Computed example of a mutant assay.
Amino acid sequence: MTNSTMPSAALLAWAAKELGTDVSVAQDASSKAHAASQPRENSRVWALGRPDGIRFYVKVTPKPVMYERETFALRHAVPALGAGHGPQLRASSAAHLALLLTAVPGAPLERQTLTPAEELRAHRRGGALLALLHAAGELSGPHRVQAERALQTAAEGADKRLRQAADRLAPAEHKLVRDLAAQLRDLPPLPLAFIHGDAWHRNLLWSQHLGQAAWIDFERSRFAPAVQDFVLMSCGIWADRPDLRAAWFQGYGRDLLPEEQHALKGLAALDAVNCLVWGPAHDDPAVTVRGRRTLDRLMAGVFA
């Protein structure tokens, strides 16, 4: 999916200068712009073509912090995935909040119809690549402090989210979310990592031809407890496909520790409330359904 708005002349001129040749906006079905059905601000992404047919992507992020996070990730962590398993940064422009990226084989996993066996293979490889990303980057100094405070920061936002949700939650659901959020403050130290921050099947590419996975979109990457990278999949496709979850963690190299599983429930509760605020406000039933379903699973005690 290509972005419906054309890039500015200044942005195209910058990309052409960095590539040393003329470029044009390409019609490319694999161009990955952030979809509107997410509770977040969207980046803009365009596929660019050179006269020799080689494709690149130019991405403009909505906030400086996202630009800084993705630039850091592409320079210091994504190379650990290996060639073809993540985009390479050709150039960046703080003035445009823009990144010029190489193309990566494959298409988002959510857009593909695969055999069950190939789905398992894709999730296994996605988990294995995420393990490499989690081990990348130097976890010391302010990075370690940031990671160690991440759950506390998440818990501190619970009351604000619940106030915004108002009567969209029953009293018992309000209590459950408050209790789970409070428990995030009291957990023992959890395994820390350099997380993707938006790890789910919209950002996991799969090439059927190559049998190869790749991760894209690192604007929410940061140092944090590793478990924070499993919230979206746990609240999404894994709810119906425990076999995919098992394949993922087989590739990742370990399953969640009991304390990580407990943290996951608290993080999922916060994600659910966020969805129940954002979905109705933006007329997005898919996000609303995700939040409602997660809360129902947590209330029933079947979230895993």
Rank of each mutant, 00 (worst) to 15 (best):
R40T: 13
F56E: 11
A9R: 09
L120T: 08
E173Q: 14
P142G: 13
R40M: 08
S234W: 01
A128Q: 04
E18K: 02
S92A: 13
D179G: 06
L12W: 08
G211I: 14
L81V: 12
E118C: 07
R292M: 04
T115S: 15
L298Y: 10
R125H: 02
L81K: 04
A103L: 04
W248H: 10
M299E: 05
G86R: 01
C275A: 07
A150T: 14
R290L: 04
G197E: 14
T113F: 04
T153W: 03
H201R: 11
G211W: 10
L151N: 12
L151R: 05
Q27K: 11
R220F: 09
A226H: 01
L97M: 13
A83T: 12
D217V: 13
I237Y: 08
K32M: 10
P62D: 02
R220L: 11
G291Q: 06
L100H: 05
L176G: 02
Q88F: 03
A77Q: 03
H262V: 13
G141S: 06
A136F: 01
A35E: 09
H96D: 13
P242H: 09
R202S: 12
L184H: 06
L210I: 10
L204K: 10
H34I: 08
V65H: 01
L89T: 10
R245M: 12
P280W: 00
V25L: 11
H262I: 04
L133P: 00
Q250N: 15
P258Q: 02
H76V: 06
S43P: 05
L99W: 03
A83M: 05
A15V: 08
L298Q: 12
V227A: 13
H76W: 02
L97Q: 13
V277T: 11
T71L: 03
L190M: 06
E173R: 07
